[in-house]
Computed example of a mutant assay.
Amino acid sequence: MMRFDLVDLALFRHVAEAGSITRGAARAHLALAAASTRIRAMEETLGAALLTRHRQGVVPTAAGRTLLAHARALLAGIDRLQGDLSAYSGGTAGQIRVVSNTHALTEFLPEVLSAYLARHPGIGIDLDEHTSDEIVGLVAEGAADLGILSGTVDTGALQVFPFRKDRFVLVASRAHPLARHDAISFAEVLDHDLVGLDRASAITRFLGERAARIGKAMRLRVQLRSFEGLCRLVECEVGLGIVPESTARRAARGMAVAVVPLTDPWTVRDLTLCLRDLSALPPFARDFVAHLRA
């Protein structure tokens, strides 16, 4: 008889979605040794492998994919149960899984999350960064409750709501020749050295894909983890940067950088919220969606 508890199911979901026992254990707030022991015990109880291990991480087997689907459904049900019963206990508790592209995560979510979490001390937000294309798949398969992504991406049958609007622009040192342009194309920018976010960031991958489409590569001299640091290096003439306009305008108020619009249509970004079914979310998650839309 199989005896998987909620900790087992939550751990397995985290491991499968992270593609790594180490990262899954961290997300589940378990020591690696304890997580590995639980996964092995689950496989021994079932009598079948749940994960295929390889050098880059793990992927679920056929049995693992079946367990993952049921684990997601059961854990979502527990979240809804907690939300429904919280009204009787005078409080609210729960976890909301959110996936976001770099743009929304760095520019808009910090203030939004701060305001929401201050009013809901019992709610936790599990926030991960992904490209917009990846976000659609994660939400559709139940790996996340809510996604925030570019409005240009096909979201299929997912429910979609508007979130924010912004665009990518060039930031350049005021001494750089391109700083005098009224506007410039992405292709022209690629002829110069750049400063960017690290290669794992969604925005760097997105810009790299755009560069590849026109047969060019990004000449990234330095990569770092924050837009603020990026703009500071641009000010010091290390290279050019491509950032959201809201970031660039804020940087220009305190740094010697120029903001130059990009002429490419894809640089204008409508950010949207996507989810499977708003009515199926627990009350606290529906309240969070309403907060984001407001």
Rank of each mutant, 00 (worst) to 15 (best):
L9Y: 02
V15K: 10
Q223R: 06
V169I: 10
A26S: 11
M2P: 03
L117P: 04
I96W: 00
V59L: 13
V260N: 12
Q82K: 11
R210W: 12
L9V: 05
I184M: 10
P282T: 01
L75D: 01
R286G: 00
D79N: 04
E141N: 00
D84K: 03
E43S: 04
A33S: 08
V139S: 06
V99W: 02
R53Q: 15
A140N: 03
G64H: 02
V112F: 11
H54C: 08
G208C: 09
G142C: 00
S150A: 04
G229C: 13
E237C: 14
G208P: 10
S36E: 15
F161D: 00
M218Y: 03
L30I: 01
D8R: 04
V15W: 15
Q95H: 05
G137V: 05
V189Q: 11
R55N: 12
P60S: 14
C231Y: 05
R293M: 15
G91N: 11
A294C: 04
A104T: 07
F4P: 09
D198Y: 08
V189G: 13
E228S: 05
L149Y: 01
A175P: 09
A115D: 01
L127R: 07
R119D: 06
A41G: 05
S201K: 09
D154M: 08
L138K: 03
L68F: 04
D133G: 12
T45S: 13
L275C: 00
A76V: 02
V58G: 07
E228Q: 09
I21N: 04
F163D: 04
